[in-house]
Amino acid sequence: MTIPLVGITSNERPFTEGSPIIHLSVSTLFADGVKRAGGIPVYLPISNPELAHDYVKKIDKLILSGGQNVDPSFYGEEKKTDSKDYFLARDIWEEALIKEALAQNKPILGVCRGMQLYNVVTGGTLNQDIKGHGDLPPFELAHKITTDEESQLRKIYGKTQIVNSVHRQSLKDVASHLKVTARSQNDDVIEGVESQSGHKFIGVQWHPEFLLGHKELADQGLFDYFVKSF
């Protein structure tokens, strides 16, 4: 039995403010979830988009991790907020990874920003600034979601699940091949989508990696499903 190699996108942060030393910045909990599910995790640094084909060819599956806002130019809008939390080079690199994963038919799991970027790259748009979803730390539970009856998220999480909430953007126009499969009970914000086309994609708006220590929650089940069955 072949053990799947799972690529995980990463961010970049300076070692200290103003330092020329740049570190990869992504939670090790992604690797924990993948390893517990029986996969081999590998973090992917931001690179030249021309190399995306080779990176994707080496992996079996791709996780798009969370992070900065997606630049609105990717869906034909101007910035409507004063936020400086954007990273265009990362957007360009991960857009190339998404397109290659689509071309090579490699399954994708999108987490928070990852779901947003995938939606944008495949034809959707975003709400640039929503209220009430970005005020708590990622390890704290924030609100309930309701899953769609015919979805994989329903099989993993059941009808309802409590999740964290650390995002200021959300899906607005959903790409035509995606189906909304989870929403926030508080305000109907889109919390999960799944692909209805031939390509395998599942996306969640919360951060399941930060909830792996909550034994009463089903977030490891999402990693198990993605690594073993997707």
Rank of each mutant, 00 (worst) to 15 (best):
F87S: 02
N127W: 11
Q128P: 02
I92D: 05
R168H: 15
L222G: 04
V111P: 00
F139T: 12
V166D: 01
I92Q: 13
L141C: 02
F87E: 07
V166K: 05
Q169W: 09
E191D: 11
T125L: 14
L88R: 12
S170V: 07
G158F: 12
K106A: 01
A142P: 02
V121S: 08
N105V: 08
D173S: 14
G192W: 03
P208I: 00
P208Y: 07
V121K: 05
I108S: 00
K179P: 00
L153W: 08
Y118A: 03
I98P: 00
K155H: 03
S165N: 05
G213E: 14
F87Y: 15
K159A: 11
R183D: 03
S197E: 11
D135P: 05
A101N: 04
G203V: 07
K200C: 11
E191L: 06
N105L: 03
K172E: 13
P107K: 07
E191T: 06
G134H: 05
K106R: 12
V193F: 05
G110H: 01
H177E: 15
Q128T: 06
E140D: 11
D85N: 15
E191Y: 13
A96N: 06
D173E: 13
L97Y: 05
G203M: 06
K200L: 10
K155D: 13
K155E: 15
E149A: 15
E95R: 15
T122P: 00
N105D: 13
K84R: 12
R113P: 00
A142L: 04
P107S: 09
L217K: 03
Q205V: 09
Q205T: 06
V120F: 05
V166C: 13
F139A: 09
I92C: 03
E100Y: 08
F226G: 01
F139N: 14
G221Y: 10
P107N: 10
M115L: 15
R168Q: 08
R90L: 02
Q116R: 13
G114H: 01
T125D: 08
Q220A: 08
D129T: 05
T122H: 04
F223H: 01
S195Q: 02
G123D: 13
L217T: 09
L171H: 12
Y86C: 05
F201P: 00
G192D: 01
H143P: 10
L97M: 06
L153I: 00
V174A: 06
P208D: 04
S197R: 01
K172C: 02
L217W: 07
E191W: 03
V189K: 02
A96V: 03
H214W: 10
Y118P: 06
D187C: 04
R90A: 06
A142Y: 08
V174T: 12
A101M: 01
E150Y: 12
R168W: 09
E216A: 04
L212R: 11
H167R: 12
P137E: 13
K179S: 15
L126P: 03
Q205H: 07
D135L: 09
L97W: 04
K99W: 10
